[in-house]
Structure formats: structure tokens, C-alpha cells
């Protein structure tokens, strides 16, 4: 209680220093929040594409069960395949009919003989696709290999790029924030040098001296986190429909962004607030901890 009162007194008596600390923390947490959301979204998008058959092998009409089994065995032995699904000519026709059920003209001319049998292959990791491709092409009875390598590779490239740039930026901001809080706390310590000296001489423990400063840093961190969360939640709510429409084929976005009054949105939103508050707590406490420790050494 005493630490809380003292921390509040520190904040009240130096409002400009408090604003500088909070603004810096706010910008860091805002960008960290946006970066985290972008990263999580990219993971979901990647997972979605990775869950789809990444590679489809079309067989020649002459290819029989033996060729299919040989290819299956070869792929299985690589240890890089997550799953394989054989689609016969008849099953391909069923799928074709389902996909084009609203267009009778397209259905009239097509029979099972026209459609090739295929093998849908999902790799354990998207990077394995390039290694599997030549292996498949060399196999007997294979007519064509169609795969989503370009989509996945582009996605990987973009997400890696985004992670590196934003990660670097957030890293810089984290260091900058800790330094700003250290400088602000050090200024306050310098103003209270005599008081701290007296506290030490009359038997105050290090924690007794340190706690108001750390609580002050934590207050900046948590308040900035709440502000950043409010701004990010506002942005997400404002663009909710556009984001949901952009990712319409990915179910998780529809579930979370479907209705802001539903549990998934509320739960993920408050979960996000919890994560941001933890980051704010850590940054605020670290900055002030380092500053006080330097003085108490």
C-alpha cells in the first residue's frame, strides 16, 4: 500500500515524465500488438494452405493400380509426406459434378473416362514440395504434377520478410522503451537521492526503496497496454467485415470476427489484452528495475 501511494505521488508530481514514458510504451505495445496479430494471422493462413492438398499428381489413362502403388510407396519412404489420397476417375467425376452442379452445360459432355485419376499429396512442411516434385515426375504413369508451391512459397517469403522487419522494429522499440524508462526513473532517483540515502541509513531494505519505482514502471506498462489494446481493438472492429471478407475461405477468421458480441471474439480480445499487459508489465518493471539497481549497487 505504501509503495502504491508513493508510486502514485511520483507520477502526480512529474506528469510530463509520466507522459513521455507512457507514450513510448504505448507506441511499442501498439506496434508489438499489430505485429503479433499479423504473425498469428499469417500462421493461420499458412496452416490453412498447408492443410490443403499441396500437390496433385495426375496419371495417364494407361496407368494402373501398380503404378499408383509404386509412387505411393516411393513417396512414403521419403518421410516427407503427411498424407496421400488417391482419387479415381469415378471419384473425380463426382467431384467435378459437385463443383459444377449449377452449370448443366459443363456436366453434359463429361464422363469418367475423360477425367484423369489423381493422387493428392500433402507434405509435412511446404519446403519439402520442391524435393518431392522431381521424384514424382520421374515415376511411371505420371502425366502432370500440379501443386501450390508458388502460393505457399510466396506466403512463406512474405511472412518471413514481415517477421524479420517487424521483429527488428519491435526489438529496437523494446530496447528504446527500456532505455527511456531507465532515464526517466534515473531522473526521479536523482531528485530523490537524499531521501533514498536516508532510507538506506535508517535500515530500509533494497525492496522497500525499489518497490515504488518498479510499481511506477509497471503502472506505465499496464496503462499503455490497455491504451494500445483499445486502439487495436477499435481498428479490428472498424475493419472487421473487410478482414473477414478478405479471408473468407479461412474458417478461423470467420469464427473470431463473425460477431463481436460472441464468445470467440470476446475471449480472443481479452486474451490479447492479457498478453499486451504482460509485455507492458515486463517492459515497465525491467526499465525501472535496471535504473534503481544501478543506483543501489
Amino acid at each position: 500500500m505504501r509503495s502504491l501511494k508513493t508510486a502514485w505521488k511520483h507520477i502526480r508530481r512529474s506528469p510530463y515524465q509520466a507522459i513521455v514514458s507512457m507514450l513510448t510504451l504505448f507506441i511499442t505495445l501498439l506496434l508489438t500488438g499489430i505485429f503479433s496479430l499479423a504473425t498469428v494471422s499469417s500462421i493461420f493462413v499458412l496452416q490453412y494452405f498447408e492443410s490443403k492438398p499441396q500437390l496433385t499428381v495426375f496419371f495417364t489413362d494407361k496407368a494402373g493400380e501398380q503404378e499408383v502403388n509404386v509412387l505411393k510407396k516411393t513417396l512414403d519412404q521419403t518421410g516427407k509426406v503427411a498424407s496421400m489420397k488417391y482419387v479415381s476417375k469415378e471419384e473425380a467425376l463426382v467431384l467435378y459434378r459437385e463443383q459444377n452442379k449449377n452449370d448443366p452445360l459443363l456436366l453434359e459432355m463429361v464422363t469418367a473416362d475423360i477425367l484423369p485419376a489423381s493422387l493428392e499429396v500433402t507434405a509435412l512442411r511446404p519446403e519439402f514440395l520442391a524435393e518431392l516434385e522431381p521424384l514424382i515426375k520421374r515415376s511411371e504413369g505420371v502425366e502432370e504434377v500440379v501443386f501450390q508451391r508458388d502460393i505457399v512459397e510466396n506466403l512463406l517469403r512474405w511472412t518471413r520478410g514481415i517477421r524479420i522487419i517487424l521483429g527488428g522494429l519491435v526489438g529496437l522499440l523494446v530496447v528504446d522503451t527500456i532505455l527511456v524508462i531507465m532515464v526517466v526513473t534515473s531522473m526521479k532517483i536523482a531528485l530523490k537521492k537524499e531521501e533514498i540515502e536516508i532510507f538506506r541509513l535508517v535500515g530500509a531494505s533494497r525492496w522497500y526503496i525499489r518497490s515504488p519505482f518498479i510499481i511506477e514502471g509497471v503502472t506505465y506498462g499496464v496503462m499503455s497496454a490497455i491504451l494500445a489494446w483499445l486502439v487495436i481493438t477499435g481498428i479490428v472492429l472498424w475493419y472487421r467485415e473487410s478482414i473477414a471478407a478478405f479471408f473468407q475461405s479461412i474458417p478461423i477468421f470467420q469464427i473470431v470476427l463473425g460477431n463481436p458480441m460472441d464468445t470467440p471474439f470476446i475471449a480472443s480480445s481479452f486474451g490479447f489484452l492479457g498478453v499486451l499487459s504482460c509485455v507492458g508489465f515486463i517492459l515497465g518493471s525491467l526499465g525501472s528495475f535496471f535504473a534503481v539497481n544501478r543506483f543501489l549497487r
Binding site: 536516508i198 538506506r200 535500515g203 530500509a204
Partner: peptide, 21 residues
């Protein structure tokens, strides 16, 4: 260093310049 305060709670100190807040 971390336990010096226990000692200082057993020893009172007064100074020429008072050291009053």
C-alpha cells in the same frame, strides 16, 4: 550487501547535517 539493512535496524545514526526529509 542485500542484508545490510538488518544491521542498520540495530544501529541508530545521527549526523551533523541532520539528514531530515
Amino acid at each position: 550487501h542485500k542484508k545490510v539493512h538488518h544491521l542498520r535496524r540495530r544501529v541508530g545514526m545521527i549526523f551533523q547535517d541532520f539528514k531530515i526529509l
